[in-house]
């Protein structure tokens, strides 16, 4: 059986070999493999597109062996955090406990802050941050932004949202 899938490797040496080894061990062949070392998922893993030829009965075993090595198989064509939104926060971002601001989103389980760039001018002046949030779907994204907006309001931060969608 020919199977195309996307797997995610941790960014540590030997992971690629660790992924390919079990395929041969189980009597499979690699048809194609696309590997971009500089591409990263929001979770910091390296995504790899791979097509293999493998007896169907061995597929579960392959996935189990990968799992032991910390390699995850994404469900075909499905990335978990599909939606992405960029926002700006202005205010005393650090002094109002930046970690708890981020946690408000991360603790939802359906959304994460995947990128944050902070710019701090002089003391007493307000800082600015660019924040990228990812979420599992549109509804979840709306909810995550509502949560962050409440958190921002509570802390006296100005949140600037994109024009479309909110």
């Amino acid at each position: 059986m020919r199977i195309a899938m996307e797997i995610e490797l941790k960014d540590i040496p030997g992971q690629l070999l660790g992924a390919l080894g079990p395929i041969a061990d189980l009597g499979g062949n690699i048809i194609s493999i696309a590997h971009q070392r500089d591409r990263r998922t929001p979770r910091g893993t390296i995504p790899i597109k791979i097509t293999i030829e493998l007896p169907e009965k061995h597929l579960d075993e392959l996935i189990a062996r990968w799992h032991e090595r910390g390699i995850t198989v994404m469900q075909k064509g499905e990335e978990r955090l599909k939606e992405s939104v960029f926002l700006i926060l202005i205010g005393h971002i650090v002094h109002t406990d930046l970690k708890s601001t981020i946690d408000a989103v991360d603790s939802t389980g359906f959304a994460e802050v995947v990128d944050l760039t902070l710019m701090m001018p002089g003391i007493d002046e307000e800082s600015s941050a660019g924040i990228t949030i990812k979420a599992t779907g549109k509804k979840e994204m709306e909810r995550a932004i509502e949560i962050l907006e409440q958190e921002a309001k509570k802390k006296g931060l100005l949140m600037i949202k994109p024009l479309e969608g909110f």
Binding site: F86, I88, I90, G91, T117, M119, P121, E125, E126, S127, S128, A129, G130, T132, L158, I160, P162
Partner: peptide, 18 residues
């Protein structure tokens, strides 16, 4: 009033204006 040059720059880096 609260818009900073930093915020405008961060936005611009991601392809936005405010």
């Amino acid at each position: 009033r609260r818009i900073t040059p930093d915020a405008l720059r961060l936005a611009l880096d991601k392809g936005y204006v405010i």
